[in-house]
Design a protein around this nucleic acid. Sequence first.
DNA 1: GCAGAAATTATTCAAGCGTATAATAACGCG
DNA 2: CGCGTTATTATACGCTTGAATAATTTCTGC
Lengths: 209, 209
Amino acid sequence: MSRRAFHRAPEGERRQDLIEATLDCIVEFGLKGATLRQIAIRAGVTAGLVRHYFDSKDQMVAEAYRAVIASLTEKAEAVKGNPETRLREFIVINLTEPVANSRSLSLWAAFISQVRVDTTLAEIHREGYLSFRNALEGLLEDFLIAKGQTPADGECRRLAIAINGLMDGLWLEGCLAADLFRESELVTIAMTSVEAMLGLPLTQTNNRT
Amino acid sequence: MSRRAFHRAPEGERRQDLIEATLDCIVEFGLKGATLRQIAIRAGVTAGLVRHYFDSKDQMVAEAYRAVIASLTEKAEAVKGNPETRLREFIVINLTEPVANSRSLSLWAAFISQVRVDTTLAEIHREGYLSFRNALEGLLEDFLIAKGQTPADGECRRLAIAINGLMDGLWLEGCLAADLFRESELVTIAMTSVEAMLGLPLTQTNNRT
DNA sequence: GCAGAAATTATTCAAGCGTATAATAACGCG
DNA sequence: CGCGTTATTATACGCTTGAATAATTTCTGC
């Protein structure tokens, strides 16, 4: 009787593989189809191994959610350049691959639908949302100040909410039905709309050709 | 040995009760927690009855999704009045109760996350989305024409996409974190933003005091 | 108020779930 | 090279799931 051959992976790597496999399964089979056995198959291990790396399946799923949030926000929070460029880049990043695609939406929706059920997930969510909106608010403040304006109290907050809403919504549309839009149509719409909301142009600067 | 007492309900009523119970369970326990037994408890019947009214649990869930879509769109599509009032009303309806609340979002997200998994749900979704956006596009066209404009080809489509995106996003924010916004703050933000995007004021008309 | 139809309950079933535990293979270190 | 550690597999367990079927109650029409 011979057992399956295997190799011992470094802890961090295996954990990441398991999380990635979890996300793959959620996308492909939904949250309820993402069983330990399916996840294990996807990760190329056996189901029992999960509990060697995580206290429970639920804990692994929560960490997988953290990974999703991170993948949705990390790029946008790392933009560099002058305020105008950063604001433009922020918009572009959030409305194009890899942030905007149907896989991201599937994952995001799967977890959001659990926020009411699982308080752990609810916390992870709120953290991510606030940090994202604060980043946008900072971007807007920098931009307005750079344009010589002194935004009134609460003005940046109001704009951040509105623009965040607009971008969430366009992101949603882009993820749900990418085929209904021409290439980069959503980015153009977002730029035009944000310009209208700010009452200022977002001229393309610093673009290398 | 005595069995549980019961009464025979009219077909339509019982079906509706079962669908309602299904949605309640999805909100409270998530899609994977919405089991036949839980649903039956909620509906005040026993689990076996479900298959007397539906071919399978999956079919019942699909019909429950149809009901959700209908509840999210029926009010907005019934607005009356002149174009400006209808546009205003459309915005208000979609950003206030009962369309905008955390229950709606939970349900919507639960189903959206399954769109990739279940082709039946995917069809129901696309139908609902397009009919909603078309309604908005018609509203915008009527409004612009009433304002003496002759919108260029594709202009209404572009505006409908952008405004639909904005409203989806604000709806999302309102559902996710209602406590972060003052009463009707989102409606105000939406109005201001739409005015900016259209380049036209949305004066409050026909309001009875 | 009885008979027949059918709505509802009760029970059973196989499959799949997450978890627990024991056996074993791989690797690092002397 | 062999030994101990532990990452990994394998197996078993108790429970829940959706579905199927049988038993029973309710209701309608006469």
